[in-house]
Write a protein that binds this DNA or RNA. Structure first.
Length: 268
DNA sequence: AACAGCACCTGTAGGC
DNA sequence: TGCCTACAGGTGCTGT
């Protein structure tokens, strides 16, 4: 469910609530959400203090006072919330961290998300391409030149560029006027320049509006995002294109729905 | 070796 | 109302 803007919103909300707090107790209801398989989270976390919470792509990285780190991935349906300890526990709650005055809960019905403990030789960057908000155009051009896949699929590949998902790829391609099926290595250099600008613009706006809530995304204070109201193509099939009024099309690409304007986004 | 396709899970919305 | 299917914001594996 969450892409970079939603994860950024979660991280900015959690930071002030948890920074400097000591973990008094840990309750892990399902071991199978933890990686590596055998990691003993209660033992690793109890008594530790949280130094800071940061984001890398869609990973929520928690740094501890021991110098150790782990990250949380929300998958499609994962949610983190900070609540009073005595609030009733809802179904699919897999992990509870107790602090003096509050409790952090990880709830994830589909269990595509999880908690990833990082060993001394591991980094939250492992397996990830560059951050889209820091990406320079020559770097993007170089990476896209290496592949013939459809640009939509290439942008979803987290090793190529890390943090975009289905919504924001469709929105960025629309903003740049690029057809999602265009082979990545066939983009012209003006197109790549526009694409890089569009990606940043879409992500910044989405972060400003605290992400998109389509079904059930919520920040740790249980608040919905607002950016879904500003989507121009995503989930708008059959509705008029905001630029030219042509009906927005929906196709399936790599098993993901893909939305675009057939008139504004042509394959060159 | 890169890449398409599917599997992994559960909840929900929409059609009949 | 109720049943059944399709689909959902992600990623990792498998087979070509």
């Amino acid at each position: 469910m969450p892409e970079l803007p939603e994860v950024q919103t979660v991280v900015s909300t959690l930071g002030p609530l948890l920074r400097g707090r000591r973990i008094d107790a840990v309750r892990l209801m399902r071991q199978d959400i933890v990686s590596p398989k055998g990691a003993n989270l209660p033992e690793l976390l109890t008594g530790r203090k949280i130094l800071q919470i940061t984001r890398r792509a869609k990973r929520i990285v928690v740094s501890l006072d021991t110098g150790e780190n782990f990250y949380i991935h929300l998958g499609m349906s994962g949610r983190l919330s900070v609540v009073p300890r005595d609030l009733p526990i809802q179904p699919h709650t897999h992990l509870l961290l107790d602090f003096a005055q509050s409790q952090l809960r990880f709830v994830d019905p589909r269990r595509f998300g999880g908690i990833f403990w990082l060993g001394r030789d591991e980094s939250p960057d492992d397996g990830l391409g560059p951050e889209p908000l820091q990406l320079r155009t020559p770097q993007l051009a170089k990476r896209l030149a290496r592949t013939t896949r459809a640009i939509k699929n290439a942008l979803l590949d987290q090793t190529l560029i890390a943090g975009l998902g289905n919504i924001y790829v469709d929105e960025a391609l629309f903003a740049a006027g690029i057809h999602p099926l265009t082979p990545a290595n066939r983009l012209s250099s003006p197109q790549i320049t526009r694409l890089n600008r569009s990606i940043k613009q879409v992500l910044r706006r989405a972060i400003h509006h605290r992400g998109s809530t389509l079904r059930d995304y919520r920040d740790p204070n249980d608040e919905a995002g607002r950016f879904q109201n500003l989507h121009r193509v995503y989930h708008r099939e059959g509705k008029p294109c905001p630029k030219c009024k042509t009906k927005i099309a929906k196709i399936v690409l790599g098993a993901r729905s893909t939305h675009f304007c057939p008139r504004c986004q042509r394959i060159k």
